[in-house]
Structure formats: C-alpha cells, structure tokens
Design a protein around this nucleic acid. Structure first.
Lengths: 244, 244
DNA sequence: CGTAGACTTGACGCATGTCAAAGTGCGTGG
DNA sequence: CCACGCACTTTGACATGCGTCAAGTCTACG
C-alpha cells in the first residue's frame, strides 16, 4: 500500500488495488486556483492526484467558505452518494491529476470484492479523519488548531515520502503551499488569526518561520503536547498506513 | 428503505438489506447516561438502535468533549476501520439496541454484493453529513448552529415517523431529549450560550419554548433562512432517504 | 526596479466564554 | 401529599479570544 487515508471528502488514500484504474488514464494539468470540480455539476468522474495539491471546499451563497480537505499525491477525489458533486475542488499549486469515469470505478468495485473491501475500509478511515476535524473545530483553540495542522502537514509529508523514522530531520521543515486564508478557512479562523498564531508559536520557540511558505518545527514534543494526544502520528494511523 | 443517513460516526441509516441481521439478535436496554461503547475497547460488536436515543462522542484527557452525533431508531453504530472504538456511545434516554457481532456483519457484506454496495452508499452519505457538521462548526455563528440543529431534529423526526408532508403541523413541535450541555458539546458552544441562543430565537419569534425539552417552530421559513440554504430537508437528502 | 498580491501587525470591538446566583422542575422520603 | 433537595436551566455581570478594520511590510514576478 502506497497511499494513505488522511485526506478527506470522499477521498481515499490510493491502494495498489485502485491505482491500476488510473494507470493508462488521461491526465489533466492544473494551475494554482484552477477548478477541477464545480459544486453542483454532475459527478461522473473521479480523479487521482498525481502530484501537487488541491483543496476541496464548500462555499455558501454569502461567501463563507469551509475547506474540507487538502489533497496530495495518491489521493482520490470525486465519489459522492448522489449524482452531483456537493463540493468544489481547486488546485493549490501546479497539479497533475489522472481522470477516470465514475462508472469505470464502480464497475471495478462491483467486480472485485477485494477492491471493494479495501475501498470500504479506506472510507472508514476518511470518516474518522473528518471527525478529527470536527473535534478540532468544536473544541480546540486557534493556536491548538495550528499545532494540529502543522503536525498534519508533517504527517502527510512523511507518508508521501515514505519516511519510516518519525524523528527524521527532514520532517521538521514543513512546507505551506497554500495561502494563509486557505489555512484559516480550513481551521475555522481568519487569516489574521493564523498569522498571529504562527507568531505566538514562534515566540514560544516551538517553530521558526523561515519564509512565508515554510516553517521549521523546533520543539516537536511541545507541539504535540499543545495539539493534544491526538497527534496524526498516533499508532492508529501509522499501523493502518505504513505497511510496505 | 426505512432508515436514513443523517446520523454520523460510522453510523448508517439502516436499510432492509441490513435490518435482517438484527432480526433475531439479542437486545440490550440502556438507561440515560449508561455507556454502550467505551472508547478504546475492542470493536467486536455493532449495534442497531431500536428506540430511544444515544450519542457518540470523543472526550479528551483534559475533559473537553465533542459529541459527534445523536443516533435514533434504525441507526447503526460500531464499525471502525481499526480494531478499537475511537469514540464513546452513551444513552441519552431509555434506549433499546440490538446487538450483532462485527464478524457476522462483515460476513454478510462479503457474501452479498448488493448489501455491500448499499452499505458503501450509506457510508458516503454519513461522510457528507459529517462535512455538514464541519461547515457548521467552522463557519456558522452560535444562533445559526442552533437553527440548523432544530431543523436537524425536525428532519430526524420526519424520517422516523415517515411523514411525507414537509408542512405537517406535528413536525413543528420539536423534542429535545438531551441536556443543554450535550447540545453545546455537539455544536462547539457552552451551555449558557445555548440557553441564550434559544432565548434570542424566541425573542425573534422564530420559536417558542414550551418546556425545557420541547420547542415549537413558529416561523419555519425564517428559521431555514437563518440556518442557510443547507436545510436538512434539501432534495439531496430527501430523494435518497424517503423511498418507501 | 516597480507593482500587485500576500502577509504581518496594531488598535479596537463584539460574540462567546466564564463565573456566580437565582430560578425551575422533578423525584424522593417524611 | 407536601416539602425538601438535587440536577438542570436560565439569567446577569464581567472577561477574553478572536474578528474586524486599517496601515504597513514583504515577496514574487514582470
């Protein structure tokens, strides 16, 4: 298994069982801000992120926007229980995705019980991750949400690069490819609060802001303490995702 | 189809395809506050709520608690992607549940492709409902969350009683069997804020507080307007759930 | 370089949290 | 049957974390 299930929104960490659907599939290149999926349109395609990053969000008619997930390599997006997408997906950076028809995926799942079971299991994990976000939004303070978010990015990076050692030094330099406002809309905050939160984390010597789009984690244990025990490097996630 | 999918947390609206698993199953009666599932214990059973109400929640070591869902008749709870439950489930009122072993359910799903596809589809809807909660917690104000919550209860009631007419007068008397603090922990608020929110809804003549555990909806369109277009009676949910 | 978009910072305001007390309903035992 | 007591709810006064508004600064890119 090469993927992971941290990504949300009907999004699965791909598994070898699914990857082959996209092996010879057409690809699409997206520029930052380009929209892959428009909420409300017919949900007849599914996508696999090959590289880059996209974000799925729901935006109300009054302009309020909630980002539901950031998706990276080997994440899977597009399936819904209904005929239409209920979320929008747009590129955060230069991104390449593979395209597959929804019917082809469904056929694969229907004809391959092992694939369907794998899909089911991953969907469970995606749901559990959605509840992680619910807990953050409902119970954690701004700075705690930021701590969780940084650990979340660090974990993604670890999975994508297949780095086994949790203490690997590379992991402590975290890339933030999205805008501050995107982080804010993901964490239920405003962009100014995100800025101030990072500053406070720096004042407490938990992180160092190298550039706008990079931070270094200086004190991982303290950051985890702040985020609460539910670190994304918890055994629950690792055991399910790091099998070779 | 008799169930629905509004309930969350690995919880499904039951479908006839699943109900039969519980037909001859042993039952368990719970008093208010009694715990059905302890977070962290082996997840070897699944449950079907026969009547009453339970709530699933995640509670941190510091005492913060996020209620993930309230579950009513024909809801289904207990499946996780891992070996252990990661949430606690306790009774809100006198409740009766049917018990089935996890392995029996898995066997059923593995041997019956139609059942498995139905399960999959429901899981998708549960996930979409979890994202509804994410949107509320991240973007809506306290009073908006309360409006959504009341419409949510009204919708449950409608589905449980299989009332087709959205305007049916019975629906406008909503029962609140849980404590104010439970509502607060579901909506990411404090119990005092919930009280004040109800008072404000009453001052605006949107509802009337009959007793502690009942409110009447006086102005449904205005309540829906306040909650935003994402009313739980939206066509998306109804079409998927109200087939006879 | 120069401009535009993104980020940071500061001053201030408000929604919600906190703390405390009074009110309400309900079960229990005298 | 009444009255006491306990748990829950409501309300009030006050505190504060985060949002809002408005400058300013940085950075990327032409």
């Amino acid at each position: 298994m090469r993927g992971h299930a941290l990504a949300m929104i009907l999004t699965l960490g791909s598994h070898d069982l699914f990857l082959d659907i996209f092996d010879a599939a057409p690809v699409l290149d997206l520029h930052p801000g380009e929209v892959l999926i428009h909420a409300g349109t017919k949900a007849d395609q599914v996508f696999n992120i090959l590289n880059g990053m996209v974000m799925a969000h729901r935006t109300g008619s009054d302009g309020r926007r909630q980002i539901l997930s950031f998706l990276v390599r080997n994440n899977f997006v597009g399936l819904t229980s209904t005929d239409d997408y209920f979320f929008t997906v747009e590129a955060v950076v230069e991104t390449r995705v593979a395209i597959c028809s929804r019917s082809a995926l469904m056929e694969r799942l229907n004809n391959d019980p092992a694939a369907e079971r794998t899909y089911l299991n991953m969907l469970h994990r995606v749901l559990e991750d959605a509840y992680d976000l619910v807990y953050s939004l409902g119970q954690r303070t701004a700075i705690e949400r930021l701590a969780v978010f940084l650990l979340y990015l660090r974990y993604w990076h670890r999975i994508c690069e297949n780095i086994v050692d949790d203490q690997d030094a590379h992991l402590n330099r975290v890339t933030l490819p999205m805008k501050r406002e995107d982080i804010a809309d993901f964490l239920g905050l405003k962009k100014e609060t995100v800025s101030r939160g990072f500053r406070q984390l720096e004042e407490r010597a938990l992180i160092h802001r190298d550039e706008h789009s990079h931070v270094s984690i200086l004190n991982l244990p303290a950051l985890r303490e702040l985020a609460g025990i539910r670190d994304f490097a918890s055994p629950r996630h690792l055991s399910a995702n790091l099998q070779p």
